[in-house]
Design a binder for these strands. Structure first.
Length: 621
DNA sequence: ACGATTCGCGCG
DNA sequence: AAAGCGCGCGAATCGT
């Protein structure tokens, strides 16, 4: 069963039950937020199979509102995210949805990205009453409570909402696909990811600003006024000026620095760290040190801390489906780039633990399964995959195995990676053939598709023009070179797309399973409550252990039950009461196995995890 | 003066 | 051009 949910003005919501085919079961009803909470609670208490899938335009828009009202749902269907998948998927190319002219569902992603400007107003959500207003007027007339007053179904006299139409269009598209099961799983996983993203943002990553400040002070020296370098940074700047004999040099300016390095007789082509590292000169060491520290200051210094950490929690804005491959992106705060240097500031609350889990060599394992390459899968069975490749005698060192594999998946042709590739191809012909196949398709401008059915974008108009130009009679050698190079670029993209995209699907399934199992844990009850009480009573603990609900915010389950707090492509963190850490770790491991089966059935590939139960993130790995 | 682009570097 | 994929972000720099 499905229930369509739309936000109405004044915080009300309009609900409309739909059957498996998307047909209306009851006329839409308008509910207040309180009524809606009761409505949801009743249905979420049903057995899992009976629980509805809540269908709405945009999880990132609607769900935060529900979360702050203390409402959690088990599963949803995110029309915006699912539309993008179905519109582009090679599996639904002939569906009405895919063939339709671009409409507001295609513009939706761009619009919401601009609309949502929550940086300064964490947790202050406005109800959207701009779109769907026309439908609302009709539905509002139905009143609340008197279900059955209107004839249900698409033949209903009231015009169907755009969301309702879109929903049925999406169900039709899925049903028309050759293997609807794959897409169904993908849409469910994508939508579950959207729920996770909203919940993680809502709960936040535990962040100790005092520890962060301590780390910064130790590295940089005490905080300085804006525009002034902290001591240690200034000292390094002085040394750099001295070594390069340039009193006025600003080491932050690549131009100035480049000239100064040249003057000092260093043959550099840029000021990049990796290039400097190869040089011998007294300025190199302080310069590299300076770069490292100045990066820390500008990217994750005190300013960052003050803008992104609220009440001991970092609330990054995750963007599910933000990357074409299906990976998440983030907006603001740089959550996917938290440098190792400051991970020590991610500290579990007192009496709590962080369970940090990371999928080991995820992408090569995904490749092995995609290609049904049993030899490669065997190399990774029960062990580090790269070590397994070494043990099979394919290459000499783990480092070689890794660089060769990455090169195969990214399309490296030169250097060490390129040299090792033939050995990999001999040992794992199926896997390497698959990457080559994907690359060739991309070079021809064709689309490739992930395991569950997410397809790569078609190269833009400019791309085709350049290709066409190379075939013109008047084509110059430059035209041809440009076309070839561009084709190879796109080939490397599609080569990587199938692996990165399928890995992203695995990760979504993994997370969805974790989320579901965590929610199914028996309420931690006495243990949790007493832990919180103790913390409340203890003066030293009060600040972090018992997190009082922020003003105007309902107390969410995340304040006492184990919950996901971070996700980074192939890594998750669960924040949990210490007593439950062990069962949480078990859930995470089992979820990885389940995700593997969901994607690849019985194909015997292991998805190994590194799991660590720690007090702070820096202790993991 | 200000938006767009480039550089450089953090993460997977 | 590091050696190949995908990102976000801040500061410097470019362009108008």
């Amino acid at each position: 069963m499905y229930v369509l949910v739309r936000q109405a003005g004044g915080g009300d919501l309009v609900v409309e039950p739909r059957d498996e085919a998307g047909a209306s079961l009851q006329p839409p009803r308008r509910l207040s937020l309180d009524e809606f909470r009761t409505f949801v609670a009743a249905r979420e208490s049903w057995a899992l199979e009976g629980r509805p899938r809540w269908v709405w335009d945009d999880t990132g828009h609607t769900y935060p509102l529900l979360l702050s009202a203390g409402i959690r749902v088990e599963r949803c269907h995110d029309l915006r995210l699912c539309h993008v998948i179905l519109k582009n998927s090679a599996l639904t190319q002939l569906s009405e949805l895919a063939l339709a002219a671009p409409d507001r569902w295609d513009a939706a992603s761009a619009v919401t990205a601009d609309q949502i400007e929550l940086r300064a107003t964490l947790f202050e959500f406005d109800v959207d009453d701009d779109h769907g207003g026309d439908d609302l007027a009709d539905h509002a007339a139905d009143g609340t409570g008197d279900s059955g007053a209107t004839e249900p179904g698409p033949d209903s006299r009231a015009p169907e909402s755009t969301s309702g139409r879109e929903f049925r269009r999406q169900l039709d598209a899925v049903a028309s696909a050759a293997e609807p099961g794959r897409l169904r799983l993908l849409l469910a996983a994508e939508s579950a990811g959207a729920l996770v993203a909203a919940e993680m943002r809502f709960a936040g990553l535990p962040w100790r600003t005092d520890v962060h400040n301590h780390l910064l002070t130790r590295e940089l020296g005490p905080r300085a006024l804006p525009g002034v370098r902290p001591d240690r940074l200034e000292l390094l700047a002085q040394r750099i000026r001295l070594e390069l004999d340039d009193d006025a040099l600003n080491p932050d300016s690549p131009q100035e620095l480049f000239k100064a390095l040249q003057r000092a007789g260093l043959a550099v082509t840029s000021t990049r760290g990796w290039e400097l590292k190869k040089l011998e000169h007294p300025v190199i060491e302080p310069l590299l040190q300076y770069k490292k520290l100045s990066r820390l200051l500008s990217a994750n210094g005190w300013t960052w801390m003050e803008s992104w950490v609220v009440n001991g929690r970092f609330h990054p804005d995750y963007v599910p489906g933000g990357v074409v491959t299906g990976r998440w992106a983030t907006r603001g705060g740089g959550a996917l780039q938290l440098p190792r240097q400051i991970r020590g500031a991610v500290v579990a609350d007192d009496g709590w633990k962080l369970v940090v889990a990371d999928a080991a060599q995820l992408e090569p394992r995904i490749l092995a399964a995609l290609a049904q390459d049993e030899r490669m899968a065997t190399a990774g069975r029960g062990t580090d995959l790269y070590a397994g490749i070494v043990a099979s005698g394919v290459v000499e060192t783990r480092d070689h195995a890794k660089v060769a594999m990455l090169g195969a998946m990214y399309g490296a042709t030169t250097g060490e990676s390129g040299r090792l590739l033939p050995r990999l191809a001999r040992a794992y012909p199926r896997a390497i053939a698959l990457t080559e196949l994907a690359a060739r398709a991309g070079e021809r401008g064709e689309v490739v598709t992930t395991r569950l059915g997410r397809s790569s974008p078609v190269p833009g108009q400019g791309w085709h023009e350049v290709q066409a130009q190379a075939y013109d009679l008047a084509a110059t050698a430059t035209d041809e070179r440009r076309a070839r190079s561009q084709a190879r670029d796109w080939g490397r993209f599609t080569r990587n797309f199938i692996v990165q995209g399928s890995a992203a699907e695995w990760a979504l399934c993994w997370m969805a399973e974790i989320r579901r199992e965590l929610a199914a844990l028996p309420a931690s009850g006495a243990g949790a409550t007493s832990a919180l009480r103790r913390a409340d009573a203890g003066p030293g603990l009060a600040a972090s252990a018992a997190r009082p609900a922020a003003p105007g915010r309902a107390r969410a389950p995340f304040d006492y039950a184990p919950h996901l707090v971070f996700f980074l492509h192939d890594e998750v963190i669960v924040h949990t009461l210490a007593a439950q850490a062990e069962v949480v770790a078990k859930i995470i491991v089992t979820a990885a196995e389940t995700a593997g089966r969901l994607l690849f059935g019985d194909f015997p590939v292991d998805f190994m995890l590194t799991v660590a139960t720690v007090d702070n993130y820096a202790q993991a790995k």
